[in-house]
Amino acid sequence: MISLIFLTTIFLIVIGISGVLFQRNFIKIIIAINIIGDGVNLFLISLGYREGGIAPIFTNAVSLNMVSPTPQALILTSIVINLAITALLLSLSVLIHSSENLVNSKKEQDEGKPASHNSKN
């Protein structure tokens, strides 16, 4: 079970990084970054997982076999931050689009612009 989660994490991160490296469309780059973020979040939340654990809320129930609450608190923050970054990236891509009417950054390279504008790295 756990190793399946780790494999999925690695898979998601690799997909995301290859997306950032090889895609030229701004929206696809943003989606790729989100995929990396999801992979990292999945990894973090799996750290607090317990087989058969209950939600970490103190009640009068007998079982104290809870999943760890800390990673959940952490990825909540991390999700919010990822959302902020996604929103900022989307608004920047809208602004770039309206400033040159071009979402596809590959077209620009084909037109012989200098390599310093290369958006991969």
């Binding site: 991160i13 990084i17 950032v20 701004f26 780059i29 970054i33 990396i36 973020g37 990292v40 990894f43 973090l44 750290l47 800390t70 990673p71 952490l74 991390s78 931050i81 990822n82 970054i85 900022l88 990236l89 920047l92 891509s93 602004l95 770039i96 400033s99 504008h117 958006s119 790295n121």
Partner: peptide, 27 residues
Amino acid sequence: LKSSFNYLVVFAIGSLFLLLGVGFLYG
């Protein structure tokens, strides 16, 4: 605008790597 976009893409990945490293230590 383009430099800002590139910067943000690079550092979004960088910060996720930082979080991954922190996750290893936490785990």
